[in-house]
């Protein structure tokens, strides 16, 4: 893992679930020497004001991210495909959550 000799530990990304049934959202990052301490630090740093009911911590080095150079091939092709948006049919009355 990168950053291993750093005295503050390695970098972790923190994901918090705000309420049951909704996805965990990225809340921020922190440094910790291992998973248990990362979990505790996440609890202390990111849930002090009742923000969450569940926490995930992931070593930042384990996240594979797309790079800005990929943007052309990854994302631009969808710009001219409006038919992929669900806007071409009527939402039946009474459907609340779409």
């Amino acid at each position: 893992m990168e950053n291993k000799d750093h005295s503050q530990g390695v970098l972790w990304e923190v994901f918090i679930q705000g309420n049951p049934g909704i996805p965990h959202k990225h809340a921020g990052s922190l440094h910790a020497p291992d998973a248990e301490m990362a979990l505790q630090a996440a609890r202390d740093v990111y849930t002090r004001r009742s923000e969450g009911i569940s926490i995930w911590v992931v070593p930042a080095a384990n996240i594979t991210a797309s790079s800005p150079e990929d943007n052309g091939s990854f994302f631009e092709p969808s710009n001219d495909k409006p038919y992929r948006h669900p806007t071409f049919y009527k939402v039946p009355d009474g459907v609340k959550y779409l």
Binding site: S7, Q8, G9, L30, H31, A32, A41, D44
Partner: peptide
């Protein structure tokens, strides 16, 4: 010693 522990201790 580190920011994370600073907040933990304050809590």
């Amino acid at each position: 010693p580190i920011l994370e522990e600073d907040i933990a201790l304050t809590n």
